[in-house]
Design a protein around this nucleic acid. Structure first.
Lengths: 194, 194
DNA sequence: GCTGTAGCGGACCGTCGGTCCGTTTCTCTC
DNA sequence: GAGAGAAACGGACCGACGGTCCGCTACAGC
């Protein structure tokens, strides 16, 4: 059974309304009634579509992260660049994605019981672990990948920018240097400073 | 005016009850009525003492973190060890504290609007930044300190242990190697692998 | 003991996530 | 185009929970 036309229309309206509200007010200030009202539908419709609050935020994050996920998948599949380069590329592109959709990704991190910066994120995480292992076989690649990802959590980025007052540019530079440092072979005298 | 005897008794009872409930069930499953009932006091008493939910969790975190804060303050003041050694010592001791009180620190991170793994944490954070600057003048010490702390968030540790299935010992080793790596001078050929 | 006041407790309130079910609307078939 | 059946709708409703209020209690100072 294909999705009914009105159902599809409502789905889009709800996603758009929720996205706008969360961007404007932050997840904690947005309740499901607000979303329903802003979308011009009944509350029951929101829950019918998305199950619960978590489902709605997850659907939003999935939608917002689609472009980045495609890009990242391409990076992982691209054999023409070194593993180290690909790690840096993944980190910087994820950073851009997180910065651009900060309130949403933050909402997702807060609300979901799953981890990761995005839904459907696991294959990319696993790819990153694999790259880390290629760069330095014998290291704890999983721990290292997670250490990098910890610096890319929306909550962490938000903390650096809002609470520590770092400009986004400075955080970007730090993230890239950190990624470079994590994939620089320890014996490499040209390892950039973090 | 000194705190009245019954008030002090109730304060302790509430803290103990809340601590136990959060440890047993996690912060999300514990409501304020439960805490009041478990402490054998009225709900109003809980709110009178601690203001709100956040205040209660903050008081708990403050109490639980007291020992570690004292230790860390001592480490910062100890001039007989190198900056690099002190960074590693701070990281490993904080890791132990976080592991030992995981549910509580996690609750604190979730509930509070402040950041940091603990209340009264800022001076130690600042000391860590200072140490990073000593180790490598010219680096972005604040970013580097935060990068280390990001790996010591209760949520991150919980993620590694519970979701990734890493034994605590493995995470501990990773954290220590990461700290060592962050304070190893880039030109140092003996830098340990992360 | 008496008294003033800090403290107590639990009924009460508003909000919000989630459910339910009578009504509406779409789509498929003839 | 009309009728039937299913899918979707919507908002009244419910239970849980954080937080408040205020009449009552009991501690501490005299």
């Amino acid at each position: 059974m294909v999705e009914r036309a009105d159902a599809a229309r409502n789905r889009e309206a709800i996603l758009a309304a929720a996205m706008r509200l969360i961007r404007e007010q932050g997840i904690d200030a947005v309740c499901m009634d607000d979303v329903a009202a802003a979308a011009g539908v009944g509350k029951g419709t929101v829950f019918r579509r998305f199950g619960d609050r978590e489902g709605l935020v997850e659907a939003l994050a999935l939608q917002a992260g689609e472009g980045w996920r495609d890009f990242a998948t391409g990076v992982l599949a691209d054999g023409s660049t070194s593993a180290a380069e690909r790690v840096v590329l993944l980190a910087s592109s994820l950073f851009e994605h997180v910065v651009e959709t900060l309130p949403l990704v933050r909402a997702f991190e807060r609300v979901t019981s799953k981890r990761g910066c995005d839904s459907g994120f696991e294959p990319i995480r696993d790819g990153l672990v694999e790259l880390m292992a290629q760069v330095d076989p014998g290291c704890d690649a999983e721990f290292r990948a997670e250490a990098l990802l910890a610096n890319l959590r929306a909550e962490h980025v938000h903390h650096l920018v809002e609470r520590c007052g770092m400009p986004v540019e400075r955080v970007r530079a730090g993230v890239i240097r950190l990624a470079e440092g994590l994939v620089a072979a320890p014996w490499d005298a040209t390892m950039p400073k973090l």
